[in-house]
Write a protein that binds this DNA or RNA. Structure first.
Ligand SMILES: [Mn+2]
Ligand SMILES: [Mn+2]
Ligand SMILES: [Zn+2]
Ligand SMILES: [Zn+2]
Lengths: 139, 139
DNA sequence: TTCCTTATTGCAAGTAGTTGCAATAAGTAT
DNA sequence: ATACTTATTGCAACTACTTGCAATAAGGAA
């Protein structure tokens, strides 16, 4: 039916509920395919859900990310974006022009394992964002 | 004299100016020793500089970080903090309890070099923040 | 269907951070 | 000292994000 239906059982098993708002926000994320800010999600989802409010969007996105239904990424300048969980990947972002490239999930795996051993911290090893300067901006 | 005096020549060489506001903000950062948010910097610096405004604080901190006079770090939840450049280090932050530990600068050097070779990006290799769960929060 | 519990939402008000622009004042030259 | 250039600031208005709380409604039980 709608594009969030597949989640209903998983939500219920954990005591959560499916709502029209969550359904619509999931639909927006699915349709976008890539990274969206909370404001973008709000503006796009509102078209199908006129009553939708900003706090609901912020809380829903946080909820989805915390429970593994979506990925969050800090992309610099304090900006936070979300996307639906697809295959695992990381990002390199150019601080100057904003150009973003994806990095294989496996590239960071060994380093993170080493750090986990030496510190005891269990590190996020998915959807990590690294910053730098792209080839064009290194003048 | 005041704790930002040592910067005056370096600023002038680049066409920048030293101001009472910058001096006072540098003094606040120096005295704190560790990470401070923009709001914390504003509230502390205002005590010595009553006319100081928020935009000036935000712009000054951004200026200091962009020009290598201070370090910025995203510490999760969209929070951004600043500190004066001392010895190089990274941070591991627990997403649950917020506990932060420092990591040797050298730990990440080799990985970042490899990534630079494979992507062409020149990556930030100082004051990197990684997220995860500390030993206590891994239940 | 109807009732019940409580997760979730909307509202209203608040805090945090940003931006355009005119006024100020740091530094330099005369 | 004085005048000049323009980097920097303060102001005001704006956008982004958060929070407490009462009202709503999802899901389960009777
Ligand atoms: Mn991504
Ligand atoms: Mn630090
Ligand atoms: Zn670039
Ligand atoms: Zn912890």
């Amino acid at each position: 039916m709608t594009c969030g239906s597949y989640l209903i059982d998983r939500l219920h098993q954990r005591g959560f509920r499916m709502t029209p708002q969550r359904m619509a926000i999931l639909h927006t994320l699915r349709r976008a395919g890539g990274h969206l800010s909370a404001t973008e999600v709000f503006e796009r989802t509102r078209r199908a859900q006129p009553g939708l409010t900003e706090p609901t969007v912020y809380r829903t996105l946080e909820f989805l990310a915390e429970n593994g239904y979506a990925l969050a990424a800090h992309i610099g300048g304090g900006k936070l974006v979300y996307e639906l969980t697809e295959e695992n990947h990381h990002h390199l972002i150019c601080k100057k022009c904003g150009k973003t490239i994806s990095v294989e999930y496996t590239v960071l795996a060994s380093v993170y394992e080493q750090l986990q051993l030496s510190t005891g911290y269990k590190l996020d090893s998915s959807h990590v964002t690294l910053f730098g300067l792209c080839p064009d901006c290194q003048t």
